[in-house]
């Protein structure tokens, strides 16, 4: 092998080592990010509360808020008395969500269709229990379910197996217990719904959608992450109907 080839090899390997070191030493810790989200949302809440208090106490004062720019987009007015904070309105990505196709059954559910959940904000998550990244999402989903369920949030996990052993219902039931999945799960064994919702050859696990109270698609994300945006969307949509 020529020397220049060896240099390319070395460069690629060195870049790999640097990249791994970089993300492990400096990169964002997902749990830390979740805590930041929590803190940011609390900051937002307290900032709004402060604003109201300021308005009441001193109509002539200019209020300053310290909401992190990357966390919650803010609109700060320059009027002497008010600072208003608005969440971005989640775009309508689809007027009607795609249908559930040939669902083989439901687990942990009192409903058997998404239509029965109209009036609720619904997070639809395509997953399979053997998928590493799907499992990484579960703690965040659990937290959101506990926090917003009473306010009208429902989560529907659509279990679309990638491999044969993930098709076995007993395996799925065991996984639900072990992973702490307590929300309704639709069994999409032949992946008909998986392909129906993700047409065009771009189908992945996990994929998360949020439906508003009227069943319109308001959020779509492939893979892990975007927990902050997801929670903001859910919080906004829940507040819409109040």
């Amino acid at each position: 092998m020529k020397m220049d080839s060896r240099l390319v090899l070395l460069a690629v390997l060195a870049a790999g080592v640097i990249a791994l070191g970089w993300t492990w030493l400096i990169g964002e810790d997902p749990e830390e990010a979740a805590l930041e989200t929590e803190a940011a949302l609390e900051t937002t809440t307290s900032s709004v509360a402060n604003t109201v208090a300021d308005e009441e106490q001193d109509a002539a004062a200019v209020t300053t808020t310290t909401v992190p720019a990357t966390t919650v987009p803010t609109t700060t007015t320059t009027a002497p008395t008010t600072t208003t904070i608005t969440f971005p309105t989640p775009e309508v990505l689809g007027e009607v969500h795609p249908p559930l196709v040939e669902i083989d059954g439901w687990l942990q559910s009192q409903v058997e269709s998404l239509e029965e959940l109209r009036g609720k904000v619904v997070v639809v998550e395509f997953w399979t229990f053997g998928c590493y990244n799907c499992k990484n999402r579960i703690p965040y989903t659990q937290e959101m379910y506990a926090k917003y369920r009473d306010q009208g949030l429902e989560i529907v996990g659509i279990h679309s197996p990638e491999f044969k052993y993930e098709e076995d219902v007993e395996n799925i039931k065991k996984a639900l217990v072990d992973l702490g999945v307590t929300w309704p799960v639709a069994l999409d064994t032949k992946r008909r719904t998986f392909w129906e919702w993700q047409a065009g050859g771009t189908a992945y696990w996990p994929r998360t959608y949020v439906l508003d109270r009227e069943g319109r698609v308001r959020f779509d994300h492939i893979g892990e992450g975007k927990y902050r945006e997801l929670e903001q969307t859910v919080a906004f949509l829940l507040s819409e109907g109040m």
Partner: peptide, 17 residues
């Protein structure tokens, strides 16, 4: 290839559309 869609790749795949 059915990738493991982590946080970064998720962003890329969304962008790809």
């Amino acid at each position: 290839w059915q990738p493991c869609v982590g946080e970064e790749l998720g962003g890329v795949l969304t962008l790809a559309q």
